[in-house]
Design a binder for these strands. Structure first.
Length: 984
RNA sequence: GCCCGGGUGGUGAAAUGGUAGACACGAGGGACUUAAAAUCCCUUGGCCCGCAAGGGCUGUGCGGGUUCAAGUCCCGCCCCGGGCACCA
């Protein structure tokens, strides 16, 4: 299904490969260039990977955000991640190398019209240029005419052409395919230029012109192309099989652009232009006349082809270093400019000037086209590169000081020579795109940072991917062979040769029965029954799906979990619809929560669900963090002592207590250190005056090993060190003056790997689950992260006890009239004050639940309980609704009380009590009286008093008069039932 | 560098532009108790005056502004947390 919609494909992807673990790691499993677990080195490696084309949904994922009631930070993170930028793609035609000698700088390109070797009008026609940029394999003589024709054909493909195009477009078959491409004087249906393969889909008409076709094939062969032909029928019947054949043929062919010395395409036409072009993406096509060089990413496919022989060694060395450098190194050296000239030049699409082509690692292979047009006058990175290598810097905007820095203002006026001169940036961008499109050298383009999502994992625990391989070509299992279940394996580990764990399974094969040959046919899969009767037996995919495969749609499955026919019935998805409220951590902002939306959109497109966003509202709960503890192991100058042989001498691990850390780092005689060493190393080996700590290695310690006052329990620590870390070298502790060893503490994410997990079981054991639940709510706003700290838990525990006591007998209340089964509550009519407390609480709690402000609800309950206790209220009419409102906060105790009140049904079925405004009105209001905004006294007035009456009453008050000292107030502001402010 | 959040007592925090610190923890004092636990009462932002009742000043990261009135709104900074980042 996914493949039919071109949503899943087997392509090459850069992965974090960890040779020691034999697995591919996710980005967040790699820390500082080594695996998070075990600290093994990780390298970037290109591997065939199943990928999902989430990029096809980039725009919709972006647009969809506007209609979602999700937290701003998540939306923003997703916008950043998708990274939409608008601009243009521009093609720079390649010219044959104009290389000078080794190390020589390229000549300054002449960029202003008139000075160049070829005087050009600002908008040359293809005829005038003598070539057609971008369609470089065409015979220029008739290129113009053919191009119009090719465009028309592209817009109006035959059914077969269109079907095939949909499954081979882009680089989905392993290399870039173009359609209706002009080669020489022919328009071929499809071509893969780097692999020199032409793909033709012949309609019925071809039967009548076989002679013509033979000529055409011969000419293409002469130019270095091979031709594969399919008929309309082939394609229409089984597009997928055709695609697989193409993929296979391509896989066997050499990529001519990968080798400098492979025969170049035969060049035709005047001007000697090359057949290829460098395509760049730019958000600033308005700066086109400021281009002074192009920069390719080191991994760009044309680097090798463009390198002139004299520079080959230099370029290859540079590319090799750049590739081997880890991400981390590359980021650490952001300030360092590096690059190398290829020796080749490209043609400026408008001026025709020669633009030198460089390689630089400031250009990223994975973004855009992996190549940039460098405008040092308008882009700071280009500027630094140009400065560093002495390349020309052309001012592109008025008022720019290009000696100092690039001018990146987007409200400037263009000043570089050419038709954009004098235009404001936004206008110039539009104009530049228009002109590029006119000459076919580019077009407006939207680029996304979002990459396709790797969908294979070298793990056991994941859904197996229902794909089998026949002659190394992947085919989907027929639906009858589904579901595919995980096989049994002896160990959940990669094989010795580094294959994923599923490769350990015996009979991990697909065996169709004899009548079931070929993809798409019905067949049944029986890995455990052995081969099918046909004796054929195809290996199954061994990678498994990532966690987000399941997490993207389980909410749908939950709607109808036992449905054997579909993920969920139409009725179920129609009934349940979107998730109303999703509460989740912000750490999933750009992973799960994006895939989750993507998956939903795809299912919507298939017409399987009636909504294209999974969750209407999303709130991030804050993370409860842990307070980690670390030991600090000293690395001292001892280790660096001349002649010291590590391991041959027993250097102890010296654990240094927290407050001693700084002291021991100063070069001085540290008796503590010397003592620690003396026991293990003979003294004369230590240079007494030079023993100090050069740095500390920090290691997490289970917080359970900390005792009172955070002192580390040394015996348990040593045991733990032996059993858990399997390490039992010599050790010494340098303690505080009171003999305690103190750890360094730090707030971090709570995580098993950090040994800072607090188990709620202990809390529940001591206080009960309701207390824990209530305390977590009471801690503060839901969205806020904070370290787990049980200091305040007594407060919620006391509250629950008081709440419980409300429903228990008081000694002198035995005579009260009773109601229901509860022996302690009275049926007396509640007082005004009691009703006010109840309804104020119901109001606050009802509103707070809507706002998810649970901490303030808990406060309100505490106030209610305090006040009702003070009133000794035992009235059923008050306490019954109150316990219902507490039920969502403390369900166990509420249920218990509910039963005690004589109810048979659960409290969760009781209707939510409604608050009534009538009980909340006050008869009087105590006005704060302020002078010039400063509150001085309180005066109580009936609530019915109007503005003027309050003002008169306030001014008549003797205390107010005394404060006025006879002065007449300038102004008196009365806000009814709020405040009175007297301006003097 | 860019984009989001934040910054209020010893602590967690509350506050439609309208009495800053509700509620709770902790701390101090007291009651009950042989004692402990539990429970209850009082005090608790800082500084100052007063024997006291009480009163004054000051105070929500810093500096300005708007307003009768600013933790809250506006402008400019500083700091902390998170996200993105040689993204063309």
């Amino acid at each position: 299904m996914l493949q039919r919609f071109r949503l899943a494909y087997l392509g090459d992807a850069w992965v974090n490969w960890c040779p020691a673990l034999g697995t591919v790691l996710a980005n967040d499993e790699v820390k500082d260039g080594v695996s998070e677990r075990g600290g093994h080195p990780v390298e970037r490696k290109r591997m065939p990977q199943w990928s999902l084309r989430i990029t096809a949904y980039a725009q919709r994922l972006l647009d969809g955000l506007d209609g979602l009631d999700w937290s701003g930070s998540i939306k923003e993170a997703q916008r950043n991640w998708i990274g939409r930028s608008e601009g243009a793609s521009v093609k720079f035609a390649l010219t044959p190398a104009l290389s000078g000698g080794e190390g020589e700088m390229p000549p300054t390109p002449a960029l202003s019209g008139g000075e160049g070797e070829v005087p050009l009008s600002p908008n040359p026609s293809p005829g005038e240029r003598g070539t057609v940029p971008g369609y470089l394999t065409a015979d220029p003589a008739i290129a113009g005419r053919l191009m119009a024709h090719a465009n028309a054909m592209r817009k109006n493909p035959t059914e077969a052409e269109d079907k095939l195009w949909q499954v081979i477009r882009g680089a989905s078959v392993g290399a870039k395919i173009r359609r209706q491409h002009i080669i020489d004087r022919y328009i071929v249906d499809f071509v893969c230029l780097p692999k020199r393969l032409v793909i033709e889909v012949d309609g019925d008409i071809h039967d009548l012109q076989q002679e013509e076709d033979a000529l055409r094939t011969a000419r293409l062969n002469e130019l270095g192309f091979d031709v594969v032909r399919f008929t309309n029928k082939d394609v229409l019947q089984d597009t997928y099989a055709v695609r697989c054949k193409i993929q296979k043929v391509l896989a066997e062919r050499r990529d001519v652009t990968q080798h400098v010395d492979s025969p170049p395409l035969p060049r035709r036409g005047a001007g000697g232009e090359g057949e290829l072009a460098i395509e760049v993406f730019t958000t600033r096509p308005d700066t086109l006349f400021g281009v002074s060089f192009l920069t390719l990413a080191p991994e760009h496919e044309l680097v090798a082809a463009l390198t002139v022989p004299e520079r080959r060694a230099e370029v290859e060395a540079y590319v090799a270093t750049a590739k081997n450098r880890s991400e981390r190194e590359r980021q650490a050296e952001v300030d360092k400019v590096s690059g190398v000239f290829t020796g080749s030049y490209a043609k400026h699409p408008f001026t025709g000037a020669d633009i030198p082509v460089w390689v630089g690692d400031y250009v990223l292979g994975g973004y855009g086209t992996g190549a940039v047009m460098a405008v040092p006058g308008g882009d700071q990175r280009d500027w630094r590169f140009a400065k560093h290598f002495g390349l020309p810097i052309i001012a592109v905007t008025e008022g720019a000081d290009i000696e100092k820095e690039a001018d990146e203002r987007k409200d400037a006026t263009i000043c570089s020579e050419g038709f954009l001169k004098g235009l404001k940036v936004p206008d110039a961008i539009r104009r530049a795109i228009q002109e590029l499109e006119k000459i076919g050298a580019g077009q407006g383009k939207v680029n996304y940072r979002l990459r396709d999502a790797a969908f294979g994992r070298q793990r056991y625990w994941g859904e197996p991917i229902p794909i089998y391989y026949k002659d190394d070509i992947p085919y989907p299992l027929p639906e009858s062979a589904l579901p595919l279940k995980l096989p049994e394996v002896d160990k959940f580990l990669p094989t010795e040769s580094g294959e994923p764990p599923l490769a350990r399974a015996k009979d991990w094969h697909y065996s169709p029965s004899p009548s079931e040959k070929g993809p798409g046919d019905e067949g049944h899969y029986s890995p455990l029954l052995g081969r099918g009767a046909g004796g054929e037996d195809y290996p199954l995919e061994t990678t498994t799906m990532p966690g987000w495969a399941g997490s993207s749609w389980y909410f749908l499955r939950y709607m109808d979990p036992h449905n054997a026919k579909r993920f969920a019935s139409q009725e179920a998805v129609d009934y349940w619809g979107q998730v109303d409220l999703y509460i989740g951590g912000s750490e999933h902002a750009t992973g799960h929560l994006l895939y989750f939306r993507f998956w939903t959109k795809f299912l919507f497109d298939l017409g399987l669900i009636p909504f294209d966003e999974p969750a209407k509202k999303l709130v991030n709960q804050g993370m409860i963090q842990g307070v980690s503890a670390f030991t600090n192991v000293a690395l001292t100058t001892f280790s660096y002592r001349p002649g010291f042989k590590p391991h041959s001498e027993r250097e102890p691990s010296v654990f240094v207590s927290h407050s001693m850390l700084e002291k021991l780092k100063r070069p001085a005689v540290h008796h503590e250190l010397i003592e620690a060493y003396r026991k293990h190393v003979s003294l004369d080996q230590i240079h007494l005056d030079g023993l100090y700590v050069t740095e500390y290695v920090t290691r997490h310690v289970p917080i359970g090993l900390l005792g009172k006052d955070d002192a580390l329990d040394l015996n348990r620590f040593i045991d733990w060190r032996k059993s858990w870390l399997e390490y039992s070298g010599e050790y010494e502790f340098i303690n505080e003056s009171n003999g305690n060893y103190l750890c360094t503490r730090e707030v971090e994410k709570m995580s098993k790997s950090k040994f800072n997990v607090v188990n709620p079981d202990d809390i529940i054991e001591k206080y009960g689950a309701d207390t824990l639940r209530l305390y977590e709510m009471f801690l503060g706003p839901l969205e806020q992260s904070k370290p787990w700290d049980t200091n305040g838990i007594e407060g919620t525990f006391r509250f629950l006890k008081k709440f419980w006591n409300l429903y228990q007998p008081v000694e002198d209340a035995a005579a009260a009239s009773h109601i229901g089964a509860d022996p302690f509550l009275s049926s007396d009519a509640p007082t005004k004050a009691e009703l006010k407390i109840l309804h104020a609480t119901l109001k606050k709690v009802t509103e707070d639940i809507g706002n998810m402000s649970f901490n303030t609800s808990v406060s309100q309950f505490m106030i209610a309980v305090n006040e009702l206790s003070a009133l000794k209220c035992k009235k059923y009419a008050i306490l019954e609704p109150l316990v219902i409102s507490l039920a969502p906060f403390a369900p166990h105790i509420a249920e218990e009380i509910w039963m005690q009140l004589g109810h048979a049904e659960s409290i969760s079925t009781a209707p939510w009590p409604q608050w009534e405004a009538q009980y909340l009105v006050d008869d009087s209001f105590s006005y704060p009286i302020s002078f010039n905004g400063k509150t001085r006294l309180q005066l109580e007035f009936p609530a019915t008093l109007g503005k003027e009456e309050v003002e008169a009453a306030v001014l008549a008050n003797p205390e107010v008069q005394a404060r006025l000292e006879g002065k007449v107030p300038k102004k008196v502001i009365v806000v009814p039932k709020r405040i009175v402010n007297i301006v003097v």
